[in-house]
Simulated assay, not measured.
Amino acid sequence: MRIALLTYSTKPRGGVVHTLNLAEALARSGADVTVWSLARGGDERFFREVDPAVEQRLVHFDDVPGETITERIVRSIDVLGSAFDPSAYDIVHAQDCISANAIGTCIRTIHHLDEFTTPILMECHEKAVVNPYARICVSRAVAGEVLDGWGLQPAVIPNGVDHQRFASAASDSDDAVSARRRWRETLGPYVLAVGGIEPRKGSIDLLEAFARMRAEAPELSLVFAGGETLFDYREYRAEFDRRRDALGIGPVILGPVADDDLPSLVAACDVFAFPSTKEGFGLAAMEALAAGRPVVARELPILREVFGDSVTYADDAESLARALLAARAPDEARRVRGSALSRSLTWDAAARAHLDFYARHPYPR
């Protein structure tokens, strides 16, 4: 089976991480897999090494100074669509709104539903839900949103998790201990959020929560990692900076972290904060559970579905602060539940479910 998986970027965003891990698992199963992506900003490769069994087709995409987000998305669709030829594949599977619009007839994974106000982007979002001939969601909650909004019934195939990669970073091996020690020597004890500073990640709520924690835990630092995104969050970042200054907080903003360094960064944190206001699954938090770290998540139905009682929940800055402080106390039963959950979700199982789905939904010629 010749499969094309399409994603919009080579940067370390959740959908891209999903695409690469799924592609490698499909290749291990014997499928012929090609990943297509736009190579933005001069990128010549993905943010991490990819199994050579997966073919890569990266489409050059120049940055254009002064281009609006709408203009950039429309150009992304045009450039990817012009480069891609579906005739070479038995399955064409788009992983996001841009690639779904670029190629038209496809299977689409809807990781989460976005909200746009610009008419052109609203139309793109609508087409990316309606036009695909078959749909997959990574959680029942998102599938329910699609059913409620459009009367469509996607299949549900959960994400996998590279459990061993993050569990190894939390192990007692000399290399793992040394890597964690380097982070602690640089950052001290810290609360970690992965995903950058943006509205969907609840970054300002976390800032407000951290301000409430200082009296009880002055030794803690607040660390943000990640942040590669297509969208323009300058206004949100400016508000974040204003609140930071008003609260007198100096969070550590690491920006994108090398893929090889991410597991030890996660494994070395005191608590992993996941105050997202919208998610499709929560892969970063699942990786933290694999590393044995306590996770405090936003009180959302989708996160309750995915994580159950393996994490604690909060719904505002005050409760988030209390939960983050409480989570520093060891809870062996919760740690064991989290480890078991993350171990149970494998990319090989996700690949088998996708192959079954592909067999039932062949590409309409």
Rank of each mutant, 00 (worst) to 15 (best):
A209V: 05
L207Y: 02
A217K: 11
D261F: 05
S178E: 14
A167R: 13
R242V: 09
E228L: 06
G248P: 08
R181G: 13
Q164M: 12
V161P: 02
F166K: 00
R242P: 04
F272L: 03
G202K: 02
F166D: 08
T277Y: 05
P263T: 00
L207Q: 12
G149S: 11
W150C: 12
L206R: 01
V177T: 15
Y236T: 09
P263V: 05
A169S: 04
R234C: 06
L265K: 00
A176P: 01
T277F: 11
Y233I: 07
L254C: 01
S264N: 11
R237A: 14
G255W: 10
R182D: 13
Y233K: 02
D174C: 04
V191M: 12
V191D: 06
A215I: 13
D174F: 11
G188L: 09
L187V: 12
L192F: 10
G202S: 15
L187G: 05
D174V: 14
A167Q: 11
L265D: 08
D245W: 03
I249Q: 12
A211S: 15
W150Y: 02
G149V: 06
W183H: 02
R234P: 03
S178F: 07
E216P: 05
A215Y: 01
V177Q: 14
G151F: 04
S168G: 05
E198Q: 15
S264R: 12
E208Y: 06
V156E: 02
G255Q: 00
E228F: 07
R214H: 04
A193N: 12
P275M: 08
E198I: 04
A155I: 07
A179L: 06
R234Q: 13
G149Y: 00
Y233N: 15
L152C: 07
